[in-house]
Amino acid sequence: MINLRYLVIYLSLVVCLILMILPLPDWVQTYRPNWAALILIYWSMALPKKVGLWFAFFTGLLVDTLHGTLLGQNALALVIIMFINLNLYQRIRVLSLPQQMFYIYSLLFINQGVIAWIEGIMGRPTSLITFLGAPVIGMLIWPWVFVILRDVRRKAMLG
């Protein structure tokens, strides 16, 4: 029997997938933060037993299908940052939000790096602005993601 309270996690996943394909003007599109990465980082910090590598892998596959990228491209990037996060989350959890932001930036940067690297192998070089822009926006949004998801988690009495 699945615990109904854990539905909250899947619900936040659905919301994040919607945010990832929400139509935006062309010039904003390149700065779209990687919502999937942000939400996965939060849940794996809060409930590392529940949200881990396999969760990241399947989320990545969903994102790949939605975005029409190679199957496994986002999955690989998310699995890698999830691995780093699972090793470090206990130290990061005690930091203040502004300090956490730098950690989030480096994770998003690695995530972006893996994706850009794969795109590069297939002969589609990415511009520097695209490469650096999205992680910065993701980092700036992190405090809100954190606060909102923490409230959601407390309402659902998880963890």
Binding site: G60, G72, L76, F83
Partner: peptide, 30 residues
């Protein structure tokens, strides 16, 4: 255990990408 899982998943991802890029077998999955 976490390291093992990561290594397995990374291999799975890379295989998936190569298969998806070179062949059409994954069209049904997609």
């Amino acid at each position: 255990v976490a390291t093992m899982h990561t290594l397995i998943l990374v291999c799975v991802c890379i295989t998936l990408m190569i298969v998806d890029h070179r062949f059409n077998h994954l069209e049904a999955v997609r």
